[in-house]
Design a protein around this nucleic acid. Sequence first.
DNA 1: AAATAATGTCACACTTTTGAGAAAATTATA
DNA 2: TATAATTTTCTCAAAAGTGTGACATTATTT
Lengths: 151, 151
Amino acid sequence: MKDTKTRIIESAIEIFGEDLSAPLQKVADNAAITRRTLHRYFADRNELVAVCRQEIESSCKKAMLRAIQSSNEPLVQLESMLYAGINCGSKYALFKRLHQDENHYHNPENKNCADYDAIFKAFHKIIIQLQIQGKVNPAMSPQWIQTLHMG
Amino acid sequence: MKDTKTRIIESAIEIFGEDLSAPLQKVADNAAITRRTLHRYFADRNELVAVCRQEIESSCKKAMLRAIQSSNEPLVQLESMLYAGINCGSKYALFKRLHQDENHYHNPENKNCADYDAIFKAFHKIIIQLQIQGKVNPAMSPQWIQTLHMG
DNA sequence: AAATAATGTCACACTTTTGAGAAAATTATA
DNA sequence: TATAATTTTCTCAAAAGTGTGACATTATTT
């Protein structure tokens, strides 16, 4: 039986990835525990979301940066990023959601936001290079491909 | 001034696309009306969601099918689908969300579900063809590209 | 087996969300 | 301008969601 706290966090990431304002009961159900137990580990919703955010930042983000640094060849980089996205699974969905949330004021001073920006700048660059190399249809803008990729 | 009911539906699609359990007040705000007015057009949340679903099924889905039928050339088809996705805008996000929702029991008997399946079968086929033509890296599975595309 | 820690159950107060009635205010229409 | 339709305002009660205390139950450790 995995550590309860860990299981709660994983459940929360899964649930919040689909629905950021889902009732905590859902998270508890998903983790196969009581809501009361959940509240023993996390004082309130905000705390839980905050921990999820940290967990995501540290695991999902690292994977992305590693993928980018895995090669100098844009096509390989892109592929690595795709696989990194797969491996992150549902974390990726929440990663995106949290950085798009209206409550989240994006500010480049913040290290997390800076890293987030760095990832997508890198992504942008890769696409541009691929277009120069004629391997990607120039009609597809980096923005669109990025949106695609975030899905 | 656009028809109120229409505006409510569009607002709802926009809001629910980001957060399926967002309070109806948000939808009302987004439509620049009162919550009371919203309730005069839709008895309850479920009814509103249901109408959104219909709206999406009929507009977004049609666009996709049209895109697929626009050509016999897989690359052109893929491109058309991408643009169709862009044009559908936020509807696309909810389209996906609703068909993944846990409350939604996917059953191929249902016409909507069948159409949904048909779209992704077609998508799958296009990717396979592109891979055969050597225009897409075979390492990228159709499933992943599909997930990508859904974003 | 006894002590300890973790989880569950039930109850409670509190907040937010929901849905609807009644009447005033606004807007559209004849 | 008078009339009708629509929307807003204010109100309220019911429902759902949240967080916590007190105590019972179950697991784990010693």
